[in-house]
Design a binder for these strands. Structure first.
Lengths: 332, 332
DNA sequence: TCTTGCATGTTAAGCGCTTAAGTTCTAGCA
DNA sequence: TGCTAGAACTTAAGCGCTTAACATGCAAGA
């Protein structure tokens, strides 16, 4: 363990070339002949050289690292987003490390501070609950981009999904299918819950339909199941759920009552999460476009590193994914 | 952004104390009077000092960082395990960073190498598919502990759940409930799949029951759903799934077909993951004891750092968690 | 009164790298 | 032939910290 890892100096000695030239060779900088570079690379491989990131960070004042602080690893939406971020960052030659806090503000902040201390080039926070003040303190040191969350730190770059639009799109899809009696299972104060509900209302009002058939209250499957029970007396013909999980809970309950989806009732979910997978290619849902979200987050970070200073708020439109849980209203 | 962060030197100047003394003060080392320490701490706070981890890592040849390489963020078992690791490590004064590869060997290796280059004090790999050779190369530089996966690198410390026992426990529970027609939805070559299946067979054989009703093949919800379709012709009365996700997929499909759980069919999952939450306090499952797994992984790492050199393989027994997805067989 | 010893510092070297500012040396050109 | 430009390096300073080795002053024991 730790058997004196070779350094640039060792390579320099072995090749008879100066440390500086070795460094330049290894990093592919101009100013070294191709023959020399090749020799250096060969010797480095032979010696099992690995560059010391601590040393190069210190010397160059750049680490080539970006940190991602994820609020909750269990949320598949965030997991997808982190994956997207990693992929894009890697393409830009940056390495990505994750920190997590499992919704514990203190631990989230720890992660953020670790990245700051590490001299990461920048940080992307994903669905965290860190306070605006704490973020601004960090942002003074290294650029912070918020993805899928909206801290009230005005000077930050932020990328979010337009959940209100998403709620509207889901509802409009059902209206276009001919449904008029549509209920919404809402998610209360959870992430995007309010906006999605507002979108539902927008769509219903725009079509002159009643917008007050709203039940539920949480982002859980139970909430979905309970909602179904609640409107058992006077069931709507279609439902907009605030998330796929909720939709799934509702559908499970409907199945138990012998209500077929979409035959007897159409259901739209939200998130296009992998949680929709159990129901196969089944659930019509709203896709939050994690790929775009992740890509833009990295791009905004790169722009900041490139010198931009004015904050950007970017709203990514969601996408309606029509599958098989919704169907046109049959004319009676 | 990056407005010349204060250094130890700045604090030294501001307090009129040497850099060395400032360093010792900030780290709480002996050799400095309490009065001086307090003064240093105050001035540091006032100046907004944050320690440069790159510099201290370089100088001390220790980073206080441990890396966790997670195979798949979407697997809630791994997410839980990472959480457990973070918590324990933090209690030992170590900071934890995550790297992920989303089951891409190359990207997993990238993460591992990043930690090596960062001079992390050690690495815990969680359910990754990195090859044994690659791991041993890294292990030569910094201690690597494998959790919930069994790379064939013999010199490594490893902590695993006794999945064979777990599979047996799940099956025995159903047998104890009076079931005799029990199927297993297996997970193929995925982590623990083989062992869980072997455990299923152990239990069935021990009770003289047929052990060949095995379907499925992957650790996905789809696989679970497909399995249900596969045995639609001659459904068993109980099912042992190789994971909660798979059980969940199966149950979703069962629900669609109007098959009640546990009324018409008992289902046991595996992992006791938070994914069991959508189904509330519902899914009977095998608990892999992530807390113990995570704690032991960190402890083994600390022991390595403390000087132990002989490899350890630790097997943690699982626990049966009886909930409401299984019920005694009704006598016909 | 003269050591000892401890508490409280200080000095200085150095961790492994990057980079600005030289130094050679060769080739091209008038 | 002499001059210059560029290619291909080398030198040396320094990034911000840690740490071993050394200094200093003061209380206590002989």
């Amino acid at each position: 363990m730790v058997p004196a890892r070779p350094t640039l100096g060792d390579i320099a000695e072995a090749t008879g070339i100066s440390e500086a030239a070795v460094s330049m060779s290894l990093r592919g900088l101009p100013g070294v002949s191709e023959a020399t570079r090749q020799r250096v690379v060969d010797v480095a491989a032979e010696l099992g050289y690995t560059r010391n990131l601590a040393a190069s960070t210190l010397a160059a004042n750049r680490s080539g690292l970006i940190g991602v602080v994820v609020g909750d690893l269990h949320n598949p939406f965030f997991a997808d987003l982190s994956d997207a971020i990693s992929a894009v960052a890697k393409a830009s030659g940056l390495r990505v490390l994750l920190g997590t806090g499992h919704y514990d503000r203190r631990r989230e902040l720890d992660a953020l501070e670790t990245f700051r201390d590490l001299r990461a080039d920048g940080v992307i926070i994903v669905g965290t609950r860190i306070g605006a003040r704490a973020i601004e303190t960090i942002d003074a040191h290294l650029p912070v981009v918020a993805a899928a969350c909206l801290p009230r730190a005005s000077k930050l770059d932020r990328v979010v999904v337009d959940d209100r639009l998403g709620g509207r799109m889901a509802t409009e899809h059902l209206i276009a299918c001919g449904h008029t009696d549509i209920a919404h299972i809402h998610g209360g104060a959870g992430a995007g819950g309010r906006e999605r509900r507002a979108g539902f209302r927008d769509a219903m009002q725009a079509s002159g339909l009643p917008d007050d058939h709203i039940v539920g209250g949480e982002f859980t499957a139970e909430s979905g199941a309970k909602a179904v029970v609640e409107f058992a007396e006077a069931p709507p013909t279609a439902v907009v759920a605030c998330s796929d999980v909720v939709a799934w809970g509702a559908m499970a309950e409907l199945a138990r009552h012998g209500v077929g989806v979409p035959a007897d009732m159409s259901v739209v979910g939200y998130d296009n999460s992998s949680i929709a997978a159990p129901v196969g290619d089944f659930l019509t849902t709203i896709d939050g476009d994690r790929a775009t979200l992740g890509r833009r987050a990295v791009e905004l970070l790169l722009e900041r590193l490139g010198g931009r200073t004015d904050p950007v708020l970017e709203v990514v439109p969601p996408r309606l994914v029509i599958r098989h849980s919704t169907s046109p209203m049959e004319n009676p």
